[in-house]
Amino acid sequence: MKLQLFNGAALAVILALATWGATRSSESQEPRGTVVVASPLPGIPETLVDVRGQTVKTGDYQRIVSLNSVADPILLELIEPNRLVGVSEYSRSQHPEGFRFADRPALARADDLEAILALKPDLVLASKFADEAFMARIREGGTPVFDLGEMRGVGSTVLTIRILGQLVRQPARAAHVESDYLLRLAALDASVPDEAEVPGLYLSIYGDSLFGGTSGTSYADMLHYAGIHDVAAEHGYTEWPKFSPEQLLAIDPPLVVTQSGMATLLCTHSTLRDLACCQQGGRVIEVPGKYHSDPGLGLVAAATAVQQLVHPERTPTAPERAPSVQHLVEHGAFP
């Protein structure tokens, strides 16, 4: 009994010590500022507050490390290229336009703390789900970390452009990037009127798992600007749904946009071969490279390329920013 009492007391002491120890040094943390709404107006605020409530000063940052694939190409348009000292692994190695970052002293490992610190950044840009502990370690060295939040297509990309413009104090250049982006999207939108849109959806297939991408994501934007009417959204799906074969057969899209190599997988799958898209007159479009998963500026290129295949008669000119268009594959009916 004595021993049990001792153990109980020890447990209480240990928990108290752990609480005290863990929260002890939090007093030295900077107080959080008030929320400043990012605005497109030319007046630049002194500080910005990111989605995690962290206050970061705006300024002429000279050594920016970006771990956000949407921010990478935008920054190239906003600042002198040598001020961007590190970009995300995705942007450099996987993105079709990774050549733009080839000369960058880029990060071999996007997550590695020491590799990032070795670049001696004065600003680190992160995305929403970076590990909080990782961000805390960088901040401890005095380097501000700004979380640009979610990457969900045109809306979030425009917001990112504006925030970055303020953060690096280049609102005029940011406005230019934004208008250029929106103009090209508007051109795509205009070439296919709503009534001419064909029904279809985005789908990826891994083994037996079917993942969609619909309203609230960049896939919905890509489909819309490609002149495709998103039937998944019409059926009430949102964000990144995981379809069962039954659900997919119920939608039975005549057109499916997917990734490289997945068309065969889809149309030879025993439960899915009866889909209309795999029959005579149906279509499965593979978007090569990683354009399909670029929720940022690359969305224009992906949408343009898909539109050329879906609406060849309506696409006015070969867009200058779709280098991979010739690699787009179109599959007809499967036997």
Binding site: L11, I14, A18, L113, D131, F134, A136
Partner: peptide, 25 residues
Amino acid sequence: VEAKGAHHLYLALPMVVLGTAVAMS
């Protein structure tokens, strides 16, 4: 543990060290 810092250390230290010591009983 690559990004774990002082907070984590202080949180776990009493639980692990004292916990093991008391478990010795």
